[in-house]
C-alpha cells in the first residue's frame, strides 16, 4: 500500500506523455538539440548531486579531528567555487551555439503565422510565388529549412511546436523569426504558450510534417482554380453572413477577420486544435462557439436550426 503513494507523482508526471506534442519525442533538428542539452544537464545534475551527498556523508561520519580547518577551506575553494565556475563556463560555451538561428537562404520557404484570440492565421510564402492562406494548421516539408515569421494581432501569444523547436513569442507590431528543419514526417501538435485570454488553453493547432515532394504538390494544387459547388449549405453560408469574416477561395468570400475556410475539409481538427473534424462537431461549433471556447471572437448562431447548421458543416467539410 505504501507504494501507491509513489505511484501518484509518477502518474502525474507521465500523464502528459504523448507522441504528438512532446519535447522528448522530437521530429525537428532544433528540438533534438534542445533535448540533447536537457539530457546532459539532467545527467550532470544527478552526478553532481551524488558527489555532493557522498562528500557530505563522509564529512559527517569523519572522526573528530580528522578534518583540518585549512583542508576544509581548500576544499570549499576548489569544489565550491572554482569547480562550479569552470563547469558552468563549459556548459555555457557548449549550450550557447544552440541559440544561433539556423542560416537561411532566399529560396527557403517562409511561413507567416499570426496569433489571434484564439486561433492562428497562416500564410505560406514560397519564394517568388503568391502567398497561400490557411488557418489553424501548419504543414512543413521534411528535410528543408523553413523560416516562420511570427507576429500577433491583438495580444501576446507564443508559438510552440514542442517536437520541432523552442517557443517563440508573437508580439503585436513585431515580427520574430524562428528557423526550423523537420526531420521526420508525421502528425504533430503545437500550442499557444503565452496566456492570451479566456480560451488560451484552447488555442492549439495541428502540425503536419510531409515529405518534400508531397508538400510541393499540396501547395501547388491551391493555385489550380477551384470550382466550388453551390448547394444549400453554400447558400446558407452566404445568407447567414459568414462571409463577413471567413474567406473561401473560389467564391465571392474574401474576408480575413476569421480563419480561412478554403480547405476546411482537410483540417484534422476544428476550432484551433480542439474538436474532432466531424460534421456534428463543426455544426455544434457554428451554432454555439462559446460553448467550446469561452470568449471566442465568433458570434453564436442560436437561430440556426440544427439541420441548417449541419448543412453548412457538410458544405464546409467538402472544401478540400
Amino acid at each position: 500500500m505504501r507504494r501507491a503513494w509513489l505511484c501518484t507523482p509518477l502518474l502525474l508526471a507521465t500523464g502528459g506523455c504523448n507522441a504528438t506534442q512532446s519535447t522528448l519525442d522530437v521530429f525537428g533538428a532544433e528540438a533534438r538539440e534542445i533535448r540533447h542539452i536537457a539530457m546532459i544537464l539532467t545527467v550532470g545534475a544527478i552526478v553532481i548531486l551524488a558527489i555532493v551527498v557522498a562528500l557530505y556523508v563522509r564529512a559527517v561520519r569523519a572522526p573528530e579531528g580528522r578534518l583540518s580547518h585549512e583542508a576544509g577551506m581548500r576544499m570549499v575553494l576548489w569544489v565550491g567555487a572554482i569547480g562550479p565556475a569552470v563547469i558552468l563556463a563549459a556548459l555555457l560555451v557548449y549550450a550557447l551555439p544552440a541559440m544561433r538561428p539556423r542560416p537561411t537562404s532566399p529560396v527557403d520557404m517562409v511561413i507567416r503565422v499570426e496569433g489571434e484570440q484564439f486561433w492562428w492565421r497562416v500564410a505560406y510564402v514560397p519564394p517568388g510565388a503568391t502567398p497561400m492562406l490557411s488557418a489553424n494548421e501548419v504543414r512543413v516539408p521534411v528535410g528543408r529549412t523553413v523560416a516562420f515569421e511570427l507576429t500577433a494581432q491583438d495580444v501576446l501569444h507564443s508559438f510552440w511546436i514542442p517536437g520541432l523547436a523552442g517557443k517563440m513569442d508573437m508580439i503585436p507590431g513585431r515580427t520574430n523569426r524562428l528557423v526550423v528543419r523537420a526531420e521526420k514526417a508525421g502528425r504533430y501538435r503545437g500550442v499557444c504558450a503565452e496566456f492570451c485570454g479566456l480560451s488560451h488553453a484552447l488555442m492549439a493547432f495541428d502540425v503536419i510534417a510531409m515529405p518534400a515532394d508531397a508538400f510541393d504538390a499540396w501547395l501547388a494544387r491551391d493555385s489550380v482554380s477551384i470550382a466550388r459547388s453551390a448547394g444549400r449549405g453554400a447558400a446558407l453560408f452566404d445568407a447567414q453572413g459568414c462571409g463577413g469574416c471567413h474567406a473561401i477561395r473560389g467564391t465571392s468570400h474574401v474576408a480575413t477577420i476569421g480563419p480561412d475556410l478554403s480547405h476546411f475539409g482537410e483540417r484534422l481538427t476544428v476550432g484551433a486544435g480542439i474538436l474532432p473534424p466531424s460534421v456534428e462537431a463543426t455544426a455544434a461549433f457554428i451554432r454555439a462557439p462559446q460553448a467550446t471556447k469561452p470568449g471566442v471572437r465568433m458570434p453564436a448562431y442560436p437561430q440556426l436550426s440544427d439541420a441548417d447548421a449541419r448543412m453548412i458543416a457538410t458544405y464546409l467539410k467538402g472544401l478540400r
Binding site: 558552468l88 563556463a89 555555457l92 560555451v93 550557447l96 541559440m99 544561433r100 538561428p101
Partner: peptide
C-alpha cells in the same frame, strides 16, 4: 566573463 560569452557566440540581434 559569463556576460561576455553570449556576445562571442551570438552575433545576431534576433
Amino acid at each position: 566573463l559569463f556576460t561576455v560569452l553570449p556576445v562571442i557566440f551570438l552575433r545576431d540581434c534576433m
